[in-house]
């Protein structure tokens, strides 16, 4: 969840079930979207590869910042929202297995990561594809927007649901989460820069990976019927 995963027991059973239901609906929609689109085997392997890189990436701590990367907005940009959505579910399943976030809170963690994937994808597509802004600026803006949005949503979700066994009101809980929000915002900007550099690097070395997401919306809408 952003850069702070929730562990089991942080949310009450009602909220755990609620977020599982929301996540299940979103994942069902992602599965439906994947089935409608062609070349499913390739999309499956691309999703699995993205998930593998995402898991491998969080095992690497960046020395100066002392943080690890999420790369969820980047996964969204490269794999698209549907495949990216399934990939973040898989990342969360693996993470839960090794204690990097709980099993019961996979629902809420998936919802947050899905927001990062979708905001990352659609923001990048709008900025680079439609508005023709540079790759670095588009990548930085899209990833930062996605991670800032998720950082704010993390605070809202926890403030509304409350930490289990806490007697504080919503407002007091939100105040207590200011430091987490601030840390997530700073990390969001750092990851925004790294994502922008990665996209610039990929654009130079293998630009065909970005063709689809950087295609102007009109072109992609015209191209869609012929591809299917």
């Amino acid at each position: 969840m952003a850069h702070i995963h929730l562990e089991d027991g942080a949310l009450s059973p009602i909220w755990v079930l609620f977020w599982w239901a929301v996540a299940a609906a979103l994942i069902a929609f992602a599965l439906y979207s994947m089935r409608r689109e062609p070349a499913s085997v390739k999309r499956l392997t691309v999703g699995a590869m993205c998930a593998a890189v995402g898991i491998a990436a969080f095992m690497v701590t960046i020395p100066v910042f002392g943080v690890h990367l999420n790369l969820t907005p980047l996964i969204g940009i490269l794999a698209g929202p549907a495949v990216g959505g399934i990939a973040v579910l898989v990342i969360n399943l693996f993470s839960a297995a090794v204690g990097h976030g709980g099993w019961g809170v996979i629902g809420v963690n998936v919802v947050i990561n899905l927001i990062e994937v979708m905001v990352g994808y659609y923001a990048y597509r709008s900025l680079k594809g439609s508005l023709r802004i540079g790759r670095f600026a588009s990548g930085f803006s899209a990833a930062t927007m996605a991670l800032v949005a998720s950082a704010i949503i993390v605070v809202v979700i926890i403030a509304v649901a409350g930490i289990q066994d806490s007697h504080l009101e919503e407002e007091e809980t939100a105040h207590n989460l200011v430091f987490i929000a601030a840390a997530n915002l700073i990390m969001g900007v750092i990851e925004g820069f790294i994502t922008a550099y990665i996209l610039t690097f990929i654009g130079k070395v293998k630009p065909d990976l970005l063709v689809e997401v950087e295609r102007p919306r009109k072109d992609s809408e015209e191209a869609q019927p012929s591809s299917s």
Partner: peptide, 14 residues
Amino acid sequence: FAGIFGHAFIHAFE
């Protein structure tokens, strides 16, 4: 690190 992860993604897609 952008180069490292960029490489990882490119290889992953290939």
